[in-house]
């Protein structure tokens, strides 16, 4: 599991989802790696991946605390007004409406790209709980996006 570039992308994407700012997201990504490698020398699948995300999440929380005011505008790349971009915006909005636990599971699974196992580690719950929450969250999202999809 030495695909550092791939993992970098994933963590960056996850952080960006959290902090909505590309510069801050990249800083946090790099800090996450440095913190991780300060203690270990390898990234193995499973626990290590989850640990990386935990570090990233905590750093994002710290970022919020420092910032105090959350920027209202997203840093998402500007796209043409196509049907695709409509759907994407709708998904983003819908996700915000979920409760925090379900939102986090979706974020770890689909934005961070973690496996069920890794998500379980990162969220501190059982695999079964992950399956359950994911299913419920997806159902809720589908309902919220009824008109758009």
């Amino acid at each position: 599991m030495n695909d550092l570039a791939g993992i970098y992308d994933k963590i960056y994407r996850y952080c960006f989802y959290k902090v909505r700012n590309s510069v801050a997201a990249e800083d946090i990504t790099q800090e996450t790696f440095l913190k991780f490698f300060g203690q270990q020398s390898k990234i193995r699948r499973g626990e290590d991946m989850a640990y990386l995300y935990t570090i990233a999440k905590n750093l994002c929380v710290d970022y919020f605390r420092r910032k105090q005011t959350l920027e209202l505008t997203d840093d998402y790349p500007v796209e043409d007004f196509t049907e695709q971009s409509d759907i994407k915006a709708a998904v983003r909005n819908a996700l915000e409406k979920l409760d925090e636990r379900r939102r986090e599971i979706i974020a770890l699974r689909y934005i961070g790209g973690l496996s069920v196992n890794e998500t379980a580690f990162a969220a501190g719950i059982s695999r079964f709980a992950v399956y359950r929450l994911e299913r419920v969250a997806l159902k809720e999202l589908k309902k919220l996006m009824e008109g758009v999809l």
Partner: peptide, 15 residues
Amino acid sequence: IEKALRSAFTPPEPR
């Protein structure tokens, strides 16, 4: 919905 989730959160290129 899964596809949408995966593609909706693409950030700008990392620097």
